[in-house]
Nucleic acid binder design. Structure first.
Length: 555
RNA sequence: GCGGGUGUAGCUCAGUGGCAGAGCGUCACGUUGCCAACGUGAAUGUCGAGGGUUCGAAUCCCUUCACCCGCUCCA
């Protein structure tokens, strides 16, 4: 396959109405994508395959292989905008809303509120230069490569005594202490704080809000106090509704709550087609279980989710299950694994994340009970405190523990979270399906063919109904068959335009698994030719059984 | 965020200061006998956007947006 296979895929997606760039006629928007008519069908099929497997077809009476006991699964659909305190307790607010400064040269990034500034002054107190350092790190010693340059520039400005402030300032205080130049309104070049890295000392940027959450305002007259956030994950909808679901739907632990929906992250660098987008769709499930069984459930869900992709056609050679190393694990997590796919835009041997399966302990429910949690010196989760010794972000105060009537035990359930990206899965299925091969044309000459080997369950169009020629009653018969498929809820197309070979290729390109051709013999034998997309094999199938024949292959 | 590259019809691209082009695709009519047929005809462009230079700009300059590659970042 060619190196630019990703270009081919992007081009095919646009040409055939699978994925378009958002607001394209206005020049497009980085990180946002639209699904066209065929893409919408494909993505809905992905979503439905997930929901069907997780919830709709789940048998809660049977103990499934590899599980300790039977369990329930329910669906939920929660709002995109949640109470701001949800994100404070979940940790997203602090994690996603820092003011940052970057070094323009070495590009290191620092939290603006952590950075301290030291200033070198002449004897009359005029500032000559300023540089940052992180508290506790090495101080300025005029010896680093960058420091020598800085020292030289300071010397050029002052021949007399130079002193360095004993007390460091915060970045905000330093900036406030400067007089902006009268003509430009900007800080003089030599007073721009320099990078904390003593071998760099490049100029730092202005503090910039580093909002990974999209901020919005609730209420027409809203002010900053009414700031709210578009959800950066769907999971919190399940956690905050845990009690509602338990109280309303007669589920018993263990059970799962599943949700498919949009999430938003203001990514710095959206890249690689839809792989990293600012608006994306997640398919997440939170599985609540007894702490003592959580390890077993974690293993179960990890393996089951990995198998799901393979079952829908992702090849073994391109899919890996990668357990996170100890360093990668969140402090509250006992285990996390990623399902990763070898996307064509990645280098050989690299994989991109499709789904993360995480053992989250009781972190989430406890956070929403008690407040934002952090690990203490012993690695135990404790409520993070502010400078006054009060909880930094208070939780809801509601009791989210669970009482098991049979064992007479009360506990906070542990959570196993398989969190999948619907757009990433869709993209993986597209990439996996994209195939170029060679097939003989009517003269026996080999011709390049582009096809999408999508699993029939995922294919946007299941069946194409094609009269071999536009006369002798073939179109009428074909149209009747087409209507049978539509009536049965099977997505079919009718096409009598152009030669039969061309029509087959059109369907190949969008992954239609079955083409049904009505020919001269149909009128006498009541059969059509069914042509298989991948093998090009043809079979005669009676019209009467056609719908059932297709339904059988969509299970 | 930084550096490099690219942006012209639905797609792939040619066009380096003087009439906006090709191939494929799409549509119509005719033809058709199972794997990209053929014939005839047609539609399709603010040359990514904004500004400037020029008698004249797709072409030169500036700004900006998007995409690709490499860094950086990444739940």
């Amino acid at each position: 396959m060619s190196d630019n296979v990703m270009d081919q895929i992007v081009s095919l997606c646009k040409r055939r109405g699978i994925i378009f760039q958002n607001s394209e006629i206005y020049g497009g928007q980085n990180g946002f994508w639209d699904y066209g008519p065929l893409g919408t069908e494909l993505k809905r099929n992905v979503r439905n395959a997930w929901y069907h497997d997780m919830v709709a077809s789940h048998d809660e009476l049977t103990v499934l292989e590899g599980t300790p006991k039977a369990f329930s699964m329910v669906g939920i659909e929660t709002a995109l905008i949640m109470h701001p305190r949800v994100w404070k307790c979940s940790g997203h607010f602090d994690l996603f809303n820092d003011m940052r400064v970057d070094c323009r040269e070495c590009r290191a990034r620092y939290r603006a509120d952590h950075l301290r500034i030291k200033v070198a002054r002449s004897d009359d107190g005029t500032p000559l230069a300023a540089w940052g350092f992180m508290p506790g790190s090495d101080e300025f010693d005029w010896s680093g490569a960058g420091d020598k340059k800085l020292a030289k520039s300071v010397r050029e400005r002052c021949e007399g005594e130079i002193s360095v402030d004993a007390a460091p300032m915060t970045l905000a205080n330093y900036t406030a202490s400067l007089q902006p130049s009268e003509d430009s309104g900007e800080i003089a070049e030599h007073l721009i704080p320099r990078c904390p890295n003593s071998s760099c000392r490049g100029p730092l940027t202005e503090p910039r809000e580093f909002n990974l959450m999209f901020k919005t305002i609730v209420g027409a007259l809203g002010t900053e106090d009414d700031a709210a956030f578009l959800r950066p994950e769907t999971a919190q909808g399940m956690f905050v509704n845990f009690k509602n679901v338990v109280d309303s739907s007669r589920v018993k632990v263990p059970f799962g709550i599943a949700q498919v929906g949009k999430s938003f992250r203001n990514e710095i660098t959206p890249r690689n087609f839809t792989f990293r987008s600012r608006e994306f769709e997640q398919m997440e499930m939170e599985f609540f279980c007894h702490p003592g069984e959580s390890q077993q459930w974690y293993t179960y869900w990890r393996d089951r989710r990995f198998a799901w992709y393979k079952n829908l056609g992702i090849s073994d050679s391109k899919l890996i299950l990668r357990d996170h190393t100890q360093e990668e694990l969140a402090h509250y997590s006992i285990g996390t694994a990623d399902v990763e796919y070898a996307f064509p835009f990645l280098a050989e041997g690299e994989y991109g994340e499709l789904e993360g399966i995480a053992h989250r302990g009781d972190f989430d429910l406890r956070s929403h009970m008690e407040g934002k949690l952090v690990a203490d010196a012993n690695g135990c989760l404790v409520v993070e405190q502010d400078e006054h010794g009060q909880p930094k972000y208070r939780g809801s105060g509601k009791d989210l523990s669970y009482f098991d009537d049979q064992t007479r035990e009360r506990f906070i359930p542990h959570v196993i979270e398989p969190a999948a990206g619907a757009d990433r899965a869709t993209l993986a299925f597209i990439c996996e399906a994209y195939t170029e091969d060679e097939q003989p044309d009517e003269h026996g000459k080999m011709q390049k063919r582009v096809l999408m080997k999508l699993d029939p369950r995922l294919a946007p169009i299941k069946v194409a109904v094609l009269p071999l020629i536009k006369k002798e009653g073939m179109p009428e018969t074909a149209q009747a068959i087409y209507r049978d498929f539509k009536a049965a809820g099977i997505n079919a197309v009718y096409d009598q335009q152009a030669a039969i070979g061309r029509r087959y290729r059109r369907q190949d390109e969008i992954g239609t698994p079955f083409c049904m051709t009505i020919d001269g013999e149909t009128a006498t034998d009541g059969c059509v030719t069914v042509r298989d997309r991948d093998s090009l094999k043809q079979d005669r199938i009676p019209i009467k059984g056609l719908v059932g024949w297709v339904q059988e292959r969509l299970k």
